[in-house]
């Protein structure tokens, strides 16, 4: 029998006390144990980005390559944690407005990656966006409208936050 580990993990602002197996990935914990299906299995090897979540605020990581037991005391955000009182996050709204969603399977990961990208760089160039989106594969959109959505979101978030140079 594999060792089990008791961990405390904050997910989307809610604290969880859970027992996880040694070899349980964060993806497996989210989908199978906690029944939170919004984070997707796309490849399991850290290449497609469908399982992208944020750790400690705004760092994008692959849930499929993260051992849950190593996350004691940490904080995770999934796409389900972006909405604020029923209002979509500006990145989510931009994806809708810019028609950046087709089959939608890459969308949760792509949205989380975009949030992470904009947290680190609030006014990225197109090239920076394209480079930042690597590690998230989309087979439907050719990335064109996704890039537009991130550009639109970056402008909207500046307004959202009260403009440049605000405190």
């Amino acid at each position: 029998m594999m060792k089990e580990h008791a961990i405390t993990l904050e997910i989307n602002g809610v604290n969880h006390q859970i027992n996880v197996a040694s070899n349980q990935t964060l993806l497996e914990l989210l989908r199978n144990q906690l029944l939170m299906p919004e984070t997707k299995y796309g490849c399991g090897t850290g290449e497609c980005g469908a399982c992208t979540v944020l750790i400690d605020g705004d760092k994008a990581i692959n849930a499929c390559l993260t051992l849950a037991a190593t996350l004691n005391g940490r904080s995770i955000t999934t796409v389900a944690g972006l909405e604020n009182n029923g209002e979509l996050h500006p990145v989510q709204q931009a994806f809708i407005d810019e028609a950046a969603i087709q089959c939608g399977f890459c969308t949760p990961g792509m949205v989380m990656k975009s949030v992470s990208l904009l947290a680190a760089n609030s006014n990225p160039t197109e090239q920076e966006i394209r480079e930042g989106l690597e590690g998230n594969i989309c087979r439907c959109t050719g990335y064109a409208k996704i890039v537009n959505a991130v550009q639109v979101a970056s402008k909207n978030m500046v307004q959202y936050a009260g403009g440049e140079g605000g405190s």
Partner: peptide, 9 residues
């Protein structure tokens, strides 16, 4: 190197 997600870890 790799991808932004992998760079973080």
């Amino acid at each position: 190197f790799a991808t932004p997600q992998l760079k973080n870890v």
